[in-house]
Simulated scan of single mutants.
Amino acid sequence: MYKEFYRRRFYITLLLIGLGVNFLIAQEEITEKELKDHIVFLTSNKNSGRYPGGKINRKIVSYIIKDFKKAGVSSFNESYKQTFTAKLRVKKGAIPKKEVKTWNVIGLIEGNDPELKKEYVVLGAHYDHLGTGGGPSSKSDKIAIHHGADDNASGTSALLEIAEKLMANKSALKRSVLLVAFGAEEQGLLGSRYFVENSVVPLSQIKLMINMDMVGRLNGENHVYMGGAGTFPNGVELMKELGPPLNLSPIVHAGSVGGSDHVSFYEKNISVLGIHTGGHPQYHTPEDTVDLINFKGQKKVCEYVYSTIMKVAGSDYKMEFIYQE
């Protein structure tokens, strides 16, 4: 009787170990399914366009935190949340809106080198969008849910998937990685501006900020666009050489730093990369929906960003800020 009990327990233990190994292997891969699952959630009608403030904003933040925890990403200090207030934009002449409370979500993957782990690569994407439109950023007069699938549910989903792969390979990191989901970008880069003015680490220790804003619409020529590659040593050459192994054709600009959250970092003399897959007619309209996302292409862009992080954070790659006109 006892022999049979221990024999069964032994085989059950082996089965659980096997399942655990498979789970870890699954988390190491960036998958089109998980990218889609994240975007489907973020763009759902229930989330009403992810406008800053209120219950929906809190729900989105909780979703991001839950996924960080699931991947094993640590909070920085005691909380994943960095709270700030956002003044909401209105069209000229319209009645001002009250400021709202919103959040940046910050995760940490610590590097392993005794000295280099004190330096950071920031990987960021904004999770907010335009709600039901009608504000100064909307390109449509329709009062309807602006789903923001490409802008920027794509960047948020990429952030979560790259975080999983970085955690699975964290032993290869020398520098540390801060993962930041920014709030209120559409209100004037408010989340990233708050972050750099209230940084959780000294700004001098942030060696590169990579921003993903609209990375879900890779075109037939496999063009991935970026500005700021000349703000760190050999950045242009590095970003060009990382493309072909992934069947990507990078369009690399040394300067052209503008338009999204990486600007806040560049203004503080921090090297940046602003990565996107190009504009489209659905930008800032209700028609920016999940059915138009190129998930196969988005996965390639995620792998490209992951490779960039591993080059910079996984080695003693020389980093210094280079100003660009």
Rank of each mutant, 00 (worst) to 15 (best):
M1C: 01
F5S: 03
R9H: 12
F10C: 08
I17A: 11
T31H: 08
L42V: 10
T43N: 04
K46P: 00
R50H: 08
R50D: 08
P52F: 02
N57C: 12
K66F: 09
E78P: 01
T83K: 14
T85R: 15
T85Q: 15
K87Q: 13
V90R: 04
I95C: 00
V100G: 02
K101I: 15
W103F: 14
V105C: 01
E119H: 12
L130K: 03
L130Q: 07
S138Q: 01
S140N: 14
I143F: 13
D150L: 09
S157T: 08
S157R: 04
S171I: 11
A172I: 00
V177E: 12
V177K: 07
L178N: 06
A181H: 09
E186R: 05
G191H: 03
E197V: 05
E197R: 15
E197C: 01
E197G: 12
N198R: 13
V201F: 05
P202Y: 02
L203N: 13
Y225W: 14
G227V: 10
T231E: 07
G235K: 06
E241I: 11
G258E: 04
G259W: 06
Y266E: 06
K268H: 08
K268C: 03
L273N: 03
G274R: 07
Y283E: 02
E287F: 07
L292M: 13
N294M: 13
F295C: 06
K296Y: 12
G297F: 06
K300V: 05
T308Y: 01
V312G: 02
V312Y: 04
S315G: 04
Y317K: 02
F321G: 04
I322P: 08
